[in-house]
Protein backbone atom coordinates (compact mmCIF):
# COMPACT_ATOMS: atom_id res chain seq x y z
CA UNK A 1 0.00 0.00 0.00
CA UNK A 2 1.36 3.48 -0.83
CA UNK A 3 1.87 5.93 2.04
CA UNK A 4 -0.87 8.20 0.59
CA UNK A 5 -3.39 5.35 0.57
CA UNK A 6 -2.36 4.34 4.09
CA UNK A 7 -2.78 7.96 5.28
CA UNK A 8 -6.25 8.12 3.79
CA UNK A 9 -7.42 4.69 5.03
CA UNK A 10 -5.80 4.60 8.47
CA UNK A 11 -8.21 6.66 10.58
CA UNK A 12 -11.40 5.22 9.00
CA UNK A 13 -10.01 1.71 9.59
CA UNK A 14 -9.29 2.54 13.23
CA UNK A 15 -12.83 3.93 13.63
CA UNK A 16 -14.30 0.71 12.19
CA UNK A 17 -12.11 -1.39 14.50
CA UNK A 18 -13.10 0.62 17.57
CA UNK A 19 -16.81 0.39 16.72
CA UNK A 20 -16.51 -3.35 16.09
CA UNK A 21 -14.79 -3.96 19.45
CA UNK A 22 -17.56 -2.10 21.31
CA UNK A 23 -20.22 -4.03 19.36
CA UNK A 24 -18.47 -7.31 20.27
CA UNK A 25 -18.56 -6.18 23.91
CA UNK A 26 -22.28 -5.35 23.88
CA UNK A 27 -23.44 -8.26 21.71
CA UNK A 28 -21.12 -11.16 22.56
CA UNK A 29 -19.71 -10.18 25.94
CA UNK A 30 -16.09 -9.88 24.66
CA UNK A 31 -15.28 -7.12 27.16
CA UNK A 32 -13.58 -4.04 25.70
CA UNK A 33 -11.26 -4.04 28.72
CA UNK A 34 -9.81 -7.26 27.25
CA UNK A 35 -9.90 -6.54 23.52
CA UNK A 36 -8.72 -2.89 23.32
CA UNK A 37 -5.04 -3.78 22.61
CA UNK A 38 -6.23 -4.94 19.16
CA UNK A 39 -6.60 -1.23 18.27
CA UNK A 40 -2.93 -0.66 19.15
CA UNK A 41 -1.88 -3.66 17.04
CA UNK A 42 -3.92 -2.31 14.12
CA UNK A 43 -2.44 1.18 14.54
CA UNK A 44 1.06 -0.37 14.49
CA UNK A 45 0.27 -2.33 11.33
CA UNK A 46 -1.10 0.79 9.64
CA UNK A 47 2.05 2.65 10.64
CA UNK A 48 4.16 -0.12 9.08
CA UNK A 49 2.11 0.28 5.89
CA UNK A 50 2.95 3.96 5.67
CA UNK A 51 0.51 5.88 7.86
CA UNK A 52 2.03 9.21 8.85
CA UNK A 53 4.72 9.28 6.14
CA UNK A 54 4.69 12.19 3.72
Amino acid sequence: MSSTAANVAAVPTLLIALGTLFLLDYRLGAHFSKTWPAVLILAGLLRLMGWGRR
Partner: peptide, 19 residues
Protein backbone atom coordinates in the same frame (compact mmCIF):
# COMPACT_ATOMS: atom_id res chain seq x y z
CA UNK B 1 -26.95 3.67 24.45
CA UNK B 2 -27.12 0.29 22.73
CA UNK B 3 -26.15 1.04 19.15
CA UNK B 4 -23.68 3.98 19.26
CA UNK B 5 -20.66 1.89 18.08
CA UNK B 6 -22.36 1.69 14.67
CA UNK B 7 -21.66 5.44 14.32
CA UNK B 8 -17.92 4.72 14.39
CA UNK B 9 -18.27 1.81 11.98
CA UNK B 10 -20.49 3.84 9.62
CA UNK B 11 -18.17 6.89 9.69
CA UNK B 12 -15.17 4.67 8.83
CA UNK B 13 -16.97 2.73 6.08
CA UNK B 14 -18.39 5.91 4.51
CA UNK B 15 -14.97 7.56 4.45
CA UNK B 16 -13.35 4.49 2.86
CA UNK B 17 -16.18 4.27 0.31
CA UNK B 18 -15.75 7.93 -0.61
CA UNK B 19 -12.03 7.45 -1.20
Amino acid sequence: AQEWPWLLVAAGVLRLAEH
